[in-house]
Amino acid sequence: MAATSRTPAAASLDSVAESLQPQLSLRERKKIKTRTTIRRATYRLIAEQGYEATTVEQIAEAAEVSPSTVFRYFPTKEDIVLTDEFDPIMLRELRSRPAGEPPLESLRAIITEAVRLSLLHDRDETLQRTRLIAEVPALRARMMESVAATSRLLCEVLAERTGRDGVDLEVRVFAMAVLGALHETTVYWAERNHEDDLLDLIARTMNTLSDGLPLGTQPT
Rank of each mutant, 00 (worst) to 15 (best):
residue 1 M to L: 09
residue 2 A to M: 10
residue 3 A to E: 13
residue 8 P to H: 08
residue 9 A to S: 11
residue 11 A to C: 09
residue 12 S to D: 11
residue 15 S to D: 13
residue 26 L to S: 11
residue 26 L to R: 14
residue 35 R to I: 11
residue 35 R to P: 03
residue 38 I to R: 11
residue 39 R to Y: 03
residue 40 R to N: 10
residue 41 A to K: 09
residue 45 L to E: 06
residue 47 A to N: 04
residue 48 E to L: 15
residue 49 Q to L: 10
residue 51 Y to R: 03
residue 51 Y to H: 09
residue 55 T to W: 06
residue 56 V to S: 05
residue 57 E to G: 14
residue 60 A to W: 08
residue 62 A to C: 02
residue 62 A to Q: 15
residue 64 E to Y: 08
residue 71 F to C: 03
residue 76 T to L: 08
residue 80 I to W: 04
residue 80 I to C: 10
residue 80 I to Q: 07
residue 81 V to I: 15
residue 81 V to M: 04
residue 82 L to C: 04
residue 84 D to R: 04
residue 85 E to N: 13
residue 85 E to F: 13
residue 86 F to Y: 14
residue 89 I to C: 07
residue 91 L to R: 14
residue 92 R to V: 03
residue 93 E to D: 13
residue 93 E to M: 10
residue 94 L to Y: 02
residue 95 R to I: 14
residue 95 R to H: 13
residue 98 P to I: 15
residue 104 L to G: 01
residue 104 L to E: 02
residue 107 L to E: 07
residue 108 R to F: 14
residue 110 I to N: 07
residue 110 I to D: 06
residue 111 I to Q: 09
residue 112 T to H: 13
residue 113 E to M: 07
residue 113 E to P: 02
residue 118 S to C: 06
residue 122 D to G: 12
residue 123 R to F: 05
residue 123 R to M: 03
residue 128 Q to N: 03
residue 130 T to A: 13
residue 132 L to T: 08
residue 141 A to P: 00
residue 141 A to S: 11
residue 142 R to A: 15
residue 145 E to K: 12
residue 151 S to W: 03
residue 153 L to R: 01
residue 154 L to N: 04
residue 154 L to S: 03
residue 156 E to S: 10
residue 161 R to Q: 05
residue 161 R to W: 00
residue 162 T to H: 01
residue 162 T to W: 04
residue 165 D to E: 12
residue 165 D to Y: 01
residue 167 V to I: 00
residue 167 V to N: 04
residue 168 D to T: 07
residue 170 E to R: 12
residue 171 V to C: 10
residue 172 R to F: 02
residue 175 A to V: 10
residue 176 M to C: 01
residue 180 G to M: 05
residue 180 G to A: 07
residue 183 H to Y: 14
residue 184 E to N: 14
residue 184 E to D: 15
residue 186 T to R: 14
residue 189 W to T: 03
residue 191 E to M: 09
residue 194 H to W: 08
residue 195 E to C: 00
residue 196 D to F: 12
residue 200 D to H: 12
residue 201 L to K: 03
residue 201 L to H: 02
residue 204 R to E: 13
residue 205 T to W: 03
residue 209 L to H: 09
residue 209 L to Y: 06
residue 213 L to T: 07
residue 214 P to Y: 10
residue 216 G to D: 15
